[in-house]
Design a protein around this nucleic acid. Structure first.
Length: 577
RNA sequence: CGGGGAGUAGCUCAGUUUGGCCAGAGCGCUGCGUUCGGGACGCAGAGGUCGCAAGUUCAAAUCUUGUCUCCCCGACCA
């Protein structure tokens, strides 16, 4: 491709609304442009990279035995009602009504439609296992799109769905996808980590998340230094804290007047105490039950752990009316003492149980209680002791200190089980003629996030440094003196030669000053660069360098092609699996 | 959705407090000339219903009200 004829509108100025490096560089290097909040147009360079990523994903999926299909982006809302995800997905689901009044959604993922397909076509164990995947746009009405394409409302996802006859089969299918993911991300040049994850509203029994560690990531991954444990924030388990020693004499429980002081900070200030000496009592409700959650003042409830604790049911913070009914007080004054017979369940975090003395709400508007001694003033048998909070700095798991790191989630694999197959009737007859639901798994990769995270972890002040596998081009020839016919001809010859030999090459044949071309070259980050200029051509040479290095080497014009190919090959070699 | 901020030339922004002499700068773009290996320089030019709508006023980018959009901080996910 000739630069002079290619649409590569690079920009010198840093875009005002781009916060993270990858977003800034994607705009500046002319990979994409924003159309509206969370939606982007990909320009030729960006699309070329995406196509390369897609090709890698497709190749590895096929190799892992999955088969590519394509389901409609526009799906009947009815499917989503059947699985309950119409409500579970909530406002994130894009909905619309057609001219006949039929309700539809734009696919955020395709469990429903693929399971519906399986329900109609699969009837025998002989057809299993099967794994179907697609690579297509997905839509999610995120409350806050941000970081460019990292969290957007429309994105390209590879989503795969496996159907197996038994749990052992699912384990195999899952492993095949897990391994394929490792190969895909390696080939894309990403440094990634795999952590245990929660399956969230996907449902199911097991999940791993693939994350690229970097500062601008939105996800938090938690791991132990010895590598024995790694999980995401939603999942990470923590050890119980050591029991505090109680000082000899603790005065009797005492009610304190705290007018209009409901929040933890305010109470602490008022009572001159610290959040870690307080116990928060949060009232949650499921469809039919009220649950009190006791957690230390400086900790946060992990609602995913909470959801699992109540048997995977949908659970949310109770509304004001419920709280007032349960506690007999306004919001902000709930406490554990005497609440046992008002709620259906009391869940107590380990850290609360470890405390010697509590400061809590009094279940009385404008009052708190202090000197609450667990066991003495609160019957510990009323509460179910569990791990229900987010891990914080200083926590351990299995005795090992937990460390925290930010990252971008680029893929996740789930063991779904039969949630979807049962609801949508994807059943088969086993070898004994017994009808059973298919056991499913689902597997997602954020294609655009691979692009963004590759840039995020590999760039410098001057621009992108692409891994060669997903770079828009493999080689860039910079012709420094385009108006010098001889120089231009040398560049042209190398260009033709590289193209003939199957190299993805871009020739910068614009009639511009060298400096401009070098700046653009750094910005768009093509990994191998051949510089053809008057000086070196006069000596019979050209210069070759890697984008990732500053030094260039002189090679004779005749050997330029071979040298460039050699560099391309060695870069590719590093990404082989 | 809650809290904060911003919409003026293709881009980055000044001007708004104190209404008029205020339609501006730099970059980019077009033409000519000089330059020509790290985003050159000179001259000449093109380009804007000041987000939109209503209102106040002799007069509105500037004041009032409404509205839309975008960005940042919190709760979801690839």
């Amino acid at each position: 491709m000739r630069y002079s004829r290619m649409f590569i509108p690079t920009v010198k100025e840093v875009p005002a609304d781009a916060e993270v490096a990858s977003h800034r560089l994607m705009i500046r290097a002319a990979l994409c442009r924003k159309v509206a909040s969370g939606t982007y147009t990909y320009l030729p360079l960006g699309w070329r990279s995406l196509l390369k990523i897609i090709a890698i994903v497709r190749e590895e999926m096929d190799k892992a035995g999955a088969q590519e299909i394509l389901v409609p982006v526009m799906q009947p809302a009815e499917f989503w009602d059947k699985t309950g995800r119409s409500t579970d997905y909530g406002p994130t689901l894009f909905r619309f009504t057609d001219r006949h009044g039929r309700k539809s959604v734009l696919e955020p993922t395709a469990e429903e439609v693929v399971t519906y397909l399986a329900a109609g076509e699969i009837s025998s164990y002989k057809q299993l296992p099967i794994n179907l995947y697609q690579i297509s746009p997905k839509f999610r009405d995120e409350f806050r799109p941000r970081f460019g394409v990292i969290r957007s409302r429309e994105f390209i996802m590879k989503d795969a769905y496996s159907f197996d006859a038994d749990p052992e089969g699912l384990d195999k299918s899952y492993k095949a996808m897990y391994d394929a993911y490792c190969r895909i991300f390696k080939r894309c040049g990403l440094e990634y980590v795999i952590v245990e994850a929660e399956s969230g509203e996907m449902g199911g029994s097991g999940s791993h998340q693939f994350t690229v560690p970097c500062e601008s990531g939105e996800d938090t991954i938690i791991y132990t230094e010895d590598g024995s444990y790694a999980a995401n924030l939603e999942r990470a388990a923590v050890d119980p804290l050591p029991k505090e020693k109680s000082s000899a004499e603790i005065p009797a429980i005492q009610e304190v007047h705290t007018p209009n002081i409901g929040s933890i900070e305010a109470v602490c200030k008022f009572l001159k105490t610290k959040p870690e000496q307080m116990v928060k009592t949060l009232i949650y409700s499921t469809k039919d039950k009220a649950v009190a959650v006791l957690i230390r003042g400086d900790h946060d409830v992990n609602e995913e752990k909470l959801r699992l604790a109540v048997g995977g049911k949908r659970i949310e913070l109770a509304d004001e009316a419920t709280i007032e009914k349960v506690t007999g007080a306004k919001v902000g004054f709930a406490g554990p003492v005497g609440i046992a017979n008002k709620v259906d369940t009391i869940l107590m975090d380990h850290a609360v149980a470890a405390m010697a003395v509590w400061v809590t709400g009094a279940n009385k508007t404008d009052y708190h209680t202090k000197n609450v001694v667990p066991g003495r003033d609160f019957d510990m048998n009323n509460a179910q002791l569990i791990d229900i909070r987010y891990a914080v700095d200083g926590d351990t798991y299995d005795g090992e200190k937990l460390l925290f790191k930010k990252g971008i989630e680029i893929g996740q694999v789930f063991k779904l089980g039969t949630k979807y197959s049962e609801k949508l009737g994807a059943k088969f007859l086993d070898e004994n003629g017994v009808e059973k639901p298919c056991i499913m798994g689902c597997y997602g990769i954020g294609i655009n996030r691979i692009l963004a995270s590759a840039i995020e972890i590999s760039n410098d002040n001057n621009g992108i440094i692409w891994p060669i596998s997903i770079a828009p081009f493999e080689v860039l020839i910079t012709c420094v003196n385009q108006d010098d016919e001889k120089v231009a001809q040398v560049a042209e010859n190398i260009y033709q030669d590289l193209m003939r030999k199957g190299i993805d090459v871009l020739l910068d044949d614009r009639s511009l000053r060298g400096g401009v071309k070098f700046k653009d070259a750094d910005l768009i980050g093509i990994p191998v660069r051949v510089t053809v200029g008057r000086k070196s051509v006069a000596e019979g040479n050209v210069e070759i360098k890697l984008r990732s290095e500053t030094k260039s080497t002189k090679v004779s014009i005749e050997k330029a092609t071979d040298k460039a190919i050699e560099l391309v090959d060695s870069l590719k070699e590093e990404l082989k699996t």
